[in-house]
Computed example of a mutant assay.
Amino acid sequence: MSTGWVTGNLYRLCDWFYRLAFLNLLWIAFTLAGFILFGIFPSTTAVFTVIRKWLRGENDVPLVRTFLQSYRKEFFHSNRLCLLFGLAACILYVDLKFVQTLQGAAFIFLTSIFSLMIILFVFTLIYIFPVYVHYEMRTLLYFRQAFFIAIVNPFQTILLVLASVLSFYVTMMLSGLFLFFGISGISLLIMWYSLRIFRYMDWEMKKHLASES
Results as ranks from 00 to 15, higher is better:
Asp60Phe: 06
Val61Asp: 12
Val61Gly: 10
Val61Ser: 12
Pro62Ile: 08
Leu63Gly: 08
Leu63Gln: 14
Leu63Cys: 14
Val64Phe: 14
Thr66Leu: 11
Phe67Cys: 05
Phe67Ala: 02
Ser70Arg: 00
Ser70Trp: 00
Ser70Tyr: 01
Tyr71Ala: 01
Tyr71Leu: 06
Tyr71Cys: 03
Arg72Ala: 06
Phe75Leu: 07
Phe76Val: 13
Arg80Gly: 15
Leu81His: 05
Cys82Val: 02
Leu83Ala: 13
Leu87His: 04
Ala89Asp: 02
Ile91Tyr: 09
Leu92Gln: 11
Leu92Asn: 15
Tyr93Asn: 08
Tyr93Leu: 13
Val94Gln: 13
Val94Cys: 07
Leu96Pro: 00
Lys97Gly: 03
Phe98Pro: 01
Gln100Asp: 12
Gln100Ile: 05
Thr101Ser: 15
Gln103Ile: 08
Gly104Phe: 15
Ala106Cys: 13
Phe107Arg: 10
Thr111His: 11
Phe114Val: 01
Phe114Asn: 02
Ser115Gly: 12
Leu116Pro: 02
Leu116Asn: 04
Met117Asp: 03
Met117Ile: 12
Ile119Glu: 03
Leu120Met: 14
Phe121Tyr: 14
Val122Cys: 14
Thr124Gln: 05
Thr124Tyr: 04
Leu125Arg: 09
Leu125Tyr: 13
Tyr127Asn: 10
Tyr127Thr: 03
Ile128Gln: 01
Val133Cys: 00
His134Val: 03
Tyr135Met: 08
Tyr135Pro: 04
Glu136Gln: 08
Glu136Leu: 08
Met137Tyr: 15
Thr139Glu: 13
Thr139Arg: 12
Thr139Gly: 05
Leu140Glu: 09
Leu141His: 15
Leu141Thr: 11
Leu141Glu: 15
Phe143Asp: 01
Arg144Met: 14
Gln145Lys: 13
Ala146Met: 08
Phe147Pro: 03
Phe148Ile: 12
Phe148Gly: 03
Phe148Tyr: 10
Phe148Trp: 14
Ala150Val: 08
Ile151Trp: 10
Ile151Thr: 14
Asn153Pro: 07
Asn153Glu: 10
Phe155Ala: 11
Gln156Trp: 09
Gln156Arg: 14
Ile158Glu: 03
Ile158His: 05
Leu159Thr: 09
Leu159Trp: 14
Leu160Asp: 02
Val161Trp: 00
Ala163Thr: 13
Ala163Ile: 10
Ala163Lys: 03
Ser164Met: 09
Val165Arg: 08
Ser167Gln: 12
Phe168Val: 11
Tyr169Glu: 08
Val170Ser: 06
Met172Lys: 07
Leu174Asn: 04
Leu174Gly: 06
Ser175Asp: 06
Phe178His: 05
Phe180Leu: 14
Phe181Thr: 01
Gly182Glu: 01
Gly182Pro: 00
Gly185Arg: 00
